[in-house]
């Protein structure tokens, strides 16, 4: 096959592939909301950093500045005296921890989680490290791993992409690098720590 033939075929293939892409919605909103959230995060991080600097300064003053007699720590009124995060028992996470069925309650950039869809947009994790579910229109599946301290990685299997108001479970799972689990809430976070999505255990 000559190069011109191959080049023509390649043009056709790429045009058809591009034409098969479902219409994306809310790109503008997601881009502007993402930037605004990032700006808020930056501000919050700056605030935390300032507080940390102040705490170090105060600690430094206490250590070097003076002959202040050593005082036992006193809890602020209303604060529990026994709250010590370093001694709190941390439950190691595993695939078993999140095994079960979950429903998205909040996904960054997705507004219409409650819209009616052909299928129930659930996400099911199994203790054997596989996940499955539906985005509302297409069956989904893949595998995942969880580190003891919440490190998370997932892969998705091949899937069809019938257009509807697809719940972007796959996007969440592929972007997530950490999870947090409380009793009935599963939170996914990106590598930089920002929250991607929140799921509730289905009853």
């Amino acid at each position: 096959m000559s190069n011109p033939d191959l080049e023509d075929d390649l043009r056709g293939t790429l045009d058809r592939a591009a034409a098969s892409v479902p219409q994306a919605t809310g790109l503008s909103d997601r881009a502007t909301t993402g930037v605004q959230q990032a700006r808020r995060r930056t501000w919050m991080v700056s605030g935390v950093a300032a507080a940390a600097v102040a705490a170090v300064a105060i600690a430094g003053f206490a250590l070097t500045g003076g002959n202040t007699p050593e005082q036992p720590p006193v809890a602020a009124p209303g604060m529990p005296q026994s709250s010590n995060p370093t001694t709190a028992a941390v439950q190691p996470l595993s695939a078993k921890t999140i095994a079960g069925t979950w429903r998205a309650t909040q996904i960054t950039g997705t507004k219409s989680l409650k819209s009616a869809r052909p299928d129930d947009p659930i996400l099911v994790f199994k203790a054997d490290g596989t996940w499955s579910g539906s985005d509302g229109c297409n069956p989904l599946q893949g595998t995942f791993t969880i580190g003891q301290r919440g490190e998370f990685a997932a892969k998705s299997g091949p899937q069809h992409m019938i257009g509807c108001e697809n719940v972007p479970h796959t996007g969440v799972l592929q972007s997530a690098k950490r999870i947090e689990v409380t009793a009935d809430t599963l939170t996914f976070a990106a590598a930089d720590g920002h929250e991607l999505a929140r799921y509730a255990r289905a009853r």
Partner: peptide
């Protein structure tokens, strides 16, 4: 598809900044 949307969104976020 998912990565395509992520890429478009990332590019748009950077452009918006």
């Amino acid at each position: 598809y998912q990565r395509a949307e992520d890429l478009a969104q990332t590019a748009l976020m950077q452009a918006f900044r």
